[in-house]
Design a protein around this nucleic acid. Structure first.
Lengths: 341, 341
DNA sequence: GTTAGCACTCGACATGATAGAGTGCTAACA
DNA sequence: TGTTAGCACTCTATCATGTCGAGTGCTAAC
């Protein structure tokens, strides 16, 4: 793969990203001054096609990058543009207003990202299974009914109602709460184990029933945690502006897919080690979104991945800008919120 | 307006709802046996057109109901079909599984409704401003940080973090909580008044600061409540199957509008007295959804409206079925959950 | 190795012809 | 007087046809 072929491939990709029209040899020779005539470019393009990097929608149309072509572009040609700076500025400006809630900032960032890239943004917050318990408290709401309040590190709150024996008093609950707090505070959810929990509380005979209920509740929280990642989506409609989504049926299928958590989860699967993962078309492994690409950035805190930010767009998306933006966004967030989820 | 004209108008509406194609005189005379020839029907249709109840997309096309036509149909002709029974069965069957959370049932019902009618369903839960406070508790999370847990009648829970002086102990918070509970429990949010609150707590000097924060928080809750209705949406993509929404731009505008709370709020505005409100096309007062109609049902508990369930579809929607379904749904919900929100 | 030139292919678009659905009007009928 | 059959007319949808232009591949010359 000589340097001229690379330049031509890059030209095809860039022009197609810009115009969404198949790009011909003449266009390239005129617009991107490679110093050779269109005929030469034609020859090279024939080679590129043979290599599977570009393809023709039909004879006598221009060329369009194949998925392999995008792949090559992303891996070897794409310049981490100076958009980076601009993005940096924009994002940190947007995040300036720090007095808002953490959740709101994340949402706003996603919205911003979606607007700028004209793609759909996804955020997956892995439940902090590694987070420690900060506070566990049982409150008497009315006779026979208690509320269990759980506060996790990172200010995550969960509430669950509990049925309890009517005879239980506020003081009983207080006792159980104190006991649980004493034993569980600072422990990570991952480290909870039913058997362990049970031994801890075996001498609380009078409050036996409450303890049982509470433990049941806690176990089910453990179960839910594993499945129930929090997924936020923004800009779901953005892609409708793209010329490749002018067909309503296509749109319907796509949007429908994006409403399904499993689909999003799979899309957002990414190697936790690398910073940014780009999946092009079929690489997503999902037929429903075969005309789309996904860019996923891990969002780390203290070196540990706690969530992911993703960008979903047409295969013909502006990878350079998207990657830049996403990178910047993840970094900025990490710097701004080193100790929050 | 003689009975034959009515029958013809009804035929036009029904046929157009079914086929989405302009309906001609011949079709009517063949399909709906009114005992007269197509020529007669033509004459009648000319009259109906003059009256503004039907219109022609262009010369030599069939007729299509105008908005006024739909209105007339809904007001005078529409039969509350026997779908009612079927719906009843279906809905109560779906709601059988009562052990789920209240919120889930509502969601499921909406999903069902959306599927069956192929429309978008909306649910607005007016915040229970009339609900009474059940429990208010301050919990010490860590030094300098407290969590305020509020439980309202109807099992609504709210959590808010509060910054407090580091010197505050668990016992201080317990004292404030007890005080607040004692004074506020059973009171309706509407009845809280800052001035009143302040006099109650004026002798808690040591905890002054916490009380202040808490009161601030409570006030802001009051403010939020007024604006922040909870709105749920389901089947947002359903309308894409309708032939009138084959144009992507139209779809984009529409879906975008439906993402905006204000739009939904306005759409769902309805006379609280009457059970069901039907707004056809321009009657919604919103240009963004001018090709849509909205049917809103009030959802009452103990005779008081606590929420609304709505159905958004194309003007050419099946009003009879929709109204039946919605009616049944609201009734079933009321019966099933007389004392929950 | 590069380029100019040329024949060829194919889609986009405009044009025109045709069929069919539906109307309005008129005259005849009960 | 209301109803109906018949007919001319209108308009759209559809298909075949022709033309244009963009783009290609190939060949021969540089």
């Amino acid at each position: 793969m000589d340097s001229r072929k690379q330049k031509i491939l890059e030209a095809v990709v860039l022009d197609y990203i810009e115009t969404a029209e198949p790009v011909g040899s003449r266009t390239i020779s005129k617009k991107y001054n490679l110093g050779v005539s269109s005929a030469t470019i034609r020859n090279e393009m024939a080679d590129l096609e043979e290599m599977g990097l570009i393809e023709q929608p039909h004879t006598s149309a221009g060329r369009v990058p194949s998925e392999a072509g995008y792949r090559y572009y992303v891996d070897y040609l794409m310049a981490q543009s100076d958009i980076q700076q601009e993005a940096q500025q924009m994002i940190s400006h947007a995040l300036q207003d720090k007095q808002q809630k953490v959740g709101d900032v994340l949402r706003d960032s996603m919205k911003l990202l979606a607007e700028v890239t004209n793609c759909t943004t996804v955020m997956v917050l892995d439940e902090n299974r590694g987070a420690a318990l900060q506070l566990l408290q049982l409150l008497l709401v009315e006779p026979g009914k208690a509320l269990m309040v759980i506060v996790m590190e990172g200010d995550k709150i969960e509430n669950h109602f509990l049925e309890i024996p009517k005879s239980m008093t506020k003081e009983d609950l207080e006792l159980v709460s104190a006991m649980m707090n004493q034993n569980l505070r600072g422990l990570k959810v991952d480290d909870w184990q039913r058997s362990m929990l049970e031994t801890i509380f075996q001498d609380l005979t009078r409050q036996r029933q409450v303890v049982d209920r509470a433990l049941e509740m806690l176990s089910s929280i453990l179960d839910i945690r594993n499945k129930d990642k929090k997924i936020y989506l923004d800009g779901g409609l953005n892609m409708l502006s793209q010329p490749e989504f002018q067909d309503v049926n296509k749109v319907k299928t796509l949007l429908h897919s994006l409403e399904q958590q499993e689909v999003l989860s799979q899309l957002m699967e990414a190697d936790n080690e690398t910073g940014i993962t780009v999946k092009i078309g079929a690489e997503t492994g999902l037929d429903e979104v075969k005309d789309c690409s996904v860019i996923v950035a891990n969002y780390k805190v203290k070196g540990k991945t706690v969530g992911k930010v993703g960008l979903i767009g047409p295969t013909r998306m502006d990878y350079a800008t998207a990657v830049s933006m996403l990178n910047t966004m993840a970094q900025t967030l990490e710097e701004a919120y080193p100790d929050k989820e």
